[in-house]
Simulated assay, not measured.
Amino acid sequence: MSVSTTAAAVAGRTEPAATRGGGARVEFRGLRREFGSGVVALDGLDLTVEPGELLALLGPSGCGKTTALRVIAGFETPDAGEVLVDGEDITRVPANRRDAGMVFQSYSLFPNLSARDNVAFGMRVRKVPAAQRAARAAELLELVGLPEHGDRYPHQMSGGQQQRVALARALALEPRVLLLDEPLSALDAKVRLTLREEIRRLQLSLGITTIFVTHDQEEALSMADRVAVLNAGRLEQCAAPSELYERPATAFVAEFVGTMNRLPGRMTDSGRVAVVGTEQPVDGAAPEGARDVEVLVRPENVTATVEPDGDATVVAASFFGSVTRVLLDLPGGVSVKADLASRDAGALAPGVRATVGLAEQPVLVVAAAS
């Protein structure tokens, strides 16, 4: 994630999702899905999505996030567990009867149909009268900002415009749940930013429960009410973006979300941890019986000051607008990243000697690698 966007991306939501409208409540209960090769995609997933909430499923490739989305859509059948929507078990309900709208990464528009007819396709299948279909399609194209594009075919539209049409098509039947499977990953950065803001605006205005699969941390943290981090088919943590970033529940979450330094430390008799010349309080429990540990620290909590006799050496400095990320080498082959205000980082050029410190705050401590 870009250093300059971290603060905005992790800003907390001020309005509880459940107060925003009539979206459905979705529950995953003990979901397990194993494929023939012995790969376990979901390993007892328990997760609840509140009505009207936008929940992002985030994790590395193969963590199970897309499988979870396909299970709720009805494209995958779990080996064990249940999927409930507003208390109704839909685990064995066919996909075409689940009242869920899905938007794919690849758009999946019909190339021989205009934008208007693509949006109206599901209504035509359900035999909605032609006049009603046309009115609804025009309304939705207006909603997604494409009122003049109804007669255009997919090849006549940009990727961002095609994805807007796909979103309008998913909303045409007024689904109880909207499912988004990495819908922005094929777009360039500027279009991606614009479209994610539009998706969030629409989701908030409609109050529809939305599950958004992404591998992009910035997308997840900036769009979602809560983010569920998956790892090897299991839920590591589900929390608001600010909590996920500032108070990660596990070392995996701490290192996967954002950037994290891993520094050698030593537990003290007082229960604190000594690290880079400071003593810090421990967040949670330290590894039992361990003296030598590793300490997880965000770059923005690292300080660096020019000092001719300092034991750190600046290796590189990367400018990100208001923030500059400085990479320093410490004794013992340890490297540390520090995110500093650019106005204070000008003197920290490569080769300069410096002193490194940490802001006083609780830190996560894990067992030292053997």
Results as ranks from 00 to 15, higher is better:
E218L: 11
D269K: 04
T278M: 08
Q203K: 01
V273A: 04
D283S: 14
V282E: 11
K190Q: 15
Q217K: 03
C238L: 08
A232P: 00
L195Y: 06
L235W: 04
E243M: 12
V227P: 02
T194P: 02
M223D: 02
I211T: 06
T194S: 12
R196E: 07
G207N: 03
A286T: 04
R234Q: 15
A224D: 04
V273R: 12
V273N: 05
L244K: 08
S222C: 13
R266T: 15
F256P: 07
V257L: 10
T259A: 08
F256W: 12
D269V: 05
Y245T: 09
L204K: 12
A240Q: 06
A254Y: 13
S205L: 04
A286F: 02
A224L: 11
M267V: 07
D216T: 03
T278P: 03
T259Y: 08
A254V: 12
A254L: 01
V276A: 15
G207S: 00
R200G: 05
A285M: 07
D269E: 04
V253C: 02
A249K: 13
E246C: 01
L206T: 03
K190D: 15
F252S: 07
I199Q: 04
R247L: 13
M260V: 01
H215L: 11
L244I: 14
P248E: 03
I211A: 10
E218N: 10
V276P: 06
P248S: 06
V213C: 06
V253F: 14
E218T: 15
P281M: 11
L263K: 02
T214F: 02
A232M: 05
E218Y: 05
F212M: 11
V282T: 01
S222W: 08
E288A: 14
P264A: 09
F256S: 06
V253T: 02
S242P: 06
L235C: 11
E198R: 02
